[in-house]
């Protein structure tokens, strides 16, 4: 019941941005650069410079926090003219491929130290919405799926003023197979602000 209460409070804090006190609630907004991995890389190979993460959490004690996070990563690739064959059939043209991934994860962080530069390790699980699209000519094929995914991460928090700091991390998002779409993955570098308490 206590955990449930913490979740409810965390979600409330995320939505409202209201903080109780310095060590309690926090919200984070970060710019993400993502590198596709595995099947994602086979489909769209360039790194994504279109992405951000919005998260909110609550420090249960000095070092442990629970967190709800939402991200948006856009992967895109122009595929030059090519011929795609299957038996006697062939189709040629340019392709425009994209994957929009929207992870929603719930997890926790263990933050080392108690002030200044504080490294942390984190982990989260949750649903990942993906929209995988291939455009060819005036036509397109699109797969929309909900994947179950998980995300280990390592990062740091550096408070440079009361209630305001910088948060950076490296995160691996792994999405399990869903529907016709195989497992997906990407590594993201995120850098942004973290706000906690007092506002």
């Amino acid at each position: 019941m206590k955990k449930f209460k913490i979740i409810i409070i965390s979600v409330f804090a995320l939505i409202t941005g209201v903080s109780a006190y310095g060590q309690g609630f926090y919200t984070n907004l970060g710019y993400d650069i993502s590198f596709p991995m595995g099947n994602t890389k086979d489909f769209v190979s360039p790194a994504s410079f279109r992405g951000f993460t919005f998260s909110g959490g609550y420090f249960i004690n000095q070092n442990i926090a629970v967190e709800l996070r939402w991200s948006w990563h856009v992967f895109y690739d122009d595929i030059p003219f090519d011929v795609y064959e299957e038996g006697s059939r062939a189709i040629s043209g340019k392709q425009y491929r994209s994957i929009n991934a929207f992870p929603v994860t719930f997890g926790g962080k263990y933050v080392f130290g108690d002030s200044g530069f504080r490294p942390y390790l984190g982990f989260g699980v949750g649903p990942y919405k993906t929209r995988k699209r291939t455009e060819m000519g005036i036509y397109y094929v699109e797969h929309r799926n909900w994947h179950f995914g998980l995300t280990p991460e390592a990062g740091f928090i550096y408070n440079f003023a009361s209630g305001v700091g910088i948060m950076g991390n490296v995160r691996y998002d792994y999405m399990m197979k869903a529907g016709d779409v195989g497992s997906q993955g990407n590594i993201s570098l995120s850098l942004g602000f973290i706000f906690s308490g007092g506002y």
Binding site: V74, Y76, S88, A90, I91
Partner: peptide, 20 residues
């Protein structure tokens, strides 16, 4: 948000099939 086709020719596709 990424664009897609820019020129008319970018929309050209050719599909073929034959009776083996």
């Amino acid at each position: 948000y990424p664009g897609g086709a820019e020129y008319y020719s970018d929309t050209d596709i050719v599909a073929t099939d034959y009776d083996s």
